[in-house]
C-alpha cells in the first residue's frame, strides 16, 4: 500500500481543517465498520459554497480526501457540489490504494450530509440529493472488494 504524493501532501498539510461557527450546513457521517468519522461545515451564500471546513477521525486517506473534497466544493453552486463524488475526489488525489477506496466515500457522504442539513434548514430541495445514512459502510459494501 502506498499513497500518492498528492495524498501525502493533503495529509501532511490538510486544507480547511476547523469549524465554521455560523455554518449554513453541518454534516457528520461515520463508517461504523472501520470506526472512522468525518464532519463537514459549509458556509453557503446566494446558492454558492463560500467556505468549507472539516474535522476527521480516520486514516491518512480519510484526512486527505476530506481536505481535497472541501477544496473542490469551495466556490461551487449546490448543484455543482453534488458532482464532487468520491470518484472525483480520488482522481484529484491521483488515486488511492484499493483498500482505502472506502475512505473517499466518507468525504462524499459527509459533504452530502452537510448539504442535506442546509436544505432541511431552508426547506428546499436539492435535485438528486438523498438523506444521509447512519452507517455509510452499508452504502459502499461492495466497492472495496479486492
Amino acid at each position: 500500500m502506498e499513497y500518492s504524493e498528492k495524498v501525502m501532501d493533503h495529509f501532511m498539510n490538510p486544507r480547511n481543517v476547523g469549524v465554521i461557527e455560523d455554518a449554513s450546513g453541518v454534516g457528520q457521517v461515520g463508517n461504523l465498520k472501520c470506526g472512522d468519522i468525518m464532519k463537514v461545515y459549509l458556509k453557503i451564500e446566494n446558492g454558492r459554497i463560500e467556505d468549507a471546513k472539516f474535522k476527521t477521525f480516520g486514516c491518512g486517506a480519510a484526512v486527505a480526501t476530506s481536505s481535497m473534497a472541501t477544496e473542490l466544493v469551495k466556490g461551487k453552486t449546490l448543484q455543482e457540489a453534488l458532482e464532487v463524488t468520491n470518484k472525483a475526489v480520488m482522481e484529484a488525489l491521483d488515486g488511492l490504494p484499493p483498500v482505502k477506496v472506502h475512505c473517499s466515500c466518507l468525504a462524499e457522504e459527509a459533504l452530502h450530509a452537510a448539504l442535506w442539513d442546509y436544505a432541511q434548514k431552508n426547506q428546499m430541495e436539492i435535485h438528486g440529493l438523498k438523506a444521509p445514512v447512519e452507517d455509510i459502510d452499508e452504502l459502499h459494501q461492495n466497492e472495496n472488494e479486492d
Binding site: Y3, M8, F11, M12, G35, D36, F57, G58, C59, G60, A62, V63
Partner: peptide, 14 residues
Amino acid sequence: SYIEGESMLLLLDA
C-alpha cells in the same frame, strides 16, 4: 483517545 493510528504512523514516518 480521539485519534486514529494510521495517521499517527504517517506523521511519525514523516
